[in-house]
């Protein structure tokens, strides 16, 4: 885009300094401008392809296999006021770094009506560590207190629009359905939990519980891209 902005200046410079060459260079600049436009259009197409929920949308329910071999749906929790849906997995260091925080979230909020529902969105054939059997092993090692579901067939995560692990969707149960209230990170410091200054997700859940507006409804953090076969 910069090029477009400078084109008239460049052309003017040639006119002033070396008038004879200006025509040729103006032509070159026109060609360049066309190229720039093409690139911009392609980028816009990519953005349009991105799907998934925004805050305010209603999230789909699902029926996914839990590590206890039972199927789990959001409809199985009639007493819940909402859900902390976390797309997470075994293999990703960023997901692992958040495991204790996810356990703590379930301990704190399940009784307040907001249980954690963890979903592994990765294709286990891409990374054996994320297999259903290894999910059972990891849940046992860490003492998960919440469902840890496998997105078999990988049909649920694209509907939510999850792109990485960990990726959190806070849902609020309403008469119209499970409304997306917050999307993003658990807090502002994955690497060093002791140096967290903003607990984005907890702030959002607390606001829902208090019936207040959520101050920060979307955040981003580095994560592992969700693994699919080509």
């Amino acid at each position: 885009m910069k090029l477009l902005k400078y084109t008239p200046i460049l052309a003017a410079a040639f006119l002033i300094s070396c008038g004879g060459e200006s025509t040729e260079n103006e032509e070159n600049n026109t060609e360049d401008s066309v190229d720039t436009t093409t690139v911009v259009e392609e980028v816009e197409e990519e953005v349009e392809k991105m799907t998934g929920y925004s805050v305010g949308d209603y999230a789909t329910d699902f029926s996914l296999k839990n590590i206890d071999d039972n199927m789990v749906s959001l409809a199985d929790f009639p007493e819940a006021n909402g859900f902390i849906v976390v797309f997470t997995c075994n293999h990703c260091p960023y997901a692992v770094a958040n495991e204790d925080r996810i356990i703590a979230l379930d301990a704190k909020y399940k009784d307040q009506g907001y249980p954690v529902i963890a979903i592994n969105p990765n294709d286990p054939e891409v990374n054996e560590e994320d297999s259903f059997e290894n999910m059972k092993v990891r849940a046992e090692e860490k003492g998960f207190t919440f469902p840890y579901l496998i997105d078999e067939g990988q049909e649920i995560y694209p509907q939510y629009g999850a792109t990485k692990t960990p990726h959190v969707y806070l849902l609020e149960k309403t008469e119209e359905g499970n409304r997306v209230a917050y999307i993003g990170a658990i807090d502002d410091n994955t690497n060093e939990p002791e140096n967290v200054t903003e607990k984005y997700l907890e702030n959002a859940v607390d606001a829902l519980i208090a019936g207040e507006e959520i101050a920060v409804t979307e955040t981003v953090a580095i994560g592992c891209s969700i693994k699919t076969k080509e």
């Binding site: 991105m50 990485k164 990170a185 502002d188 410091n189 994560g223």
Partner: peptide, 22 residues
């Protein structure tokens, strides 16, 4: 790059970056 608060810097790289790598 060692900057823990991705929510601050990721959008400055690109507003549409979800934070997934690569």
């Amino acid at each position: 790059l060692d900057d823990p608060n991705g929510n601050e810097w990721i959008p400055k790289i690109d507003p549409d970056w979800s934070g997934a790598i690569p």
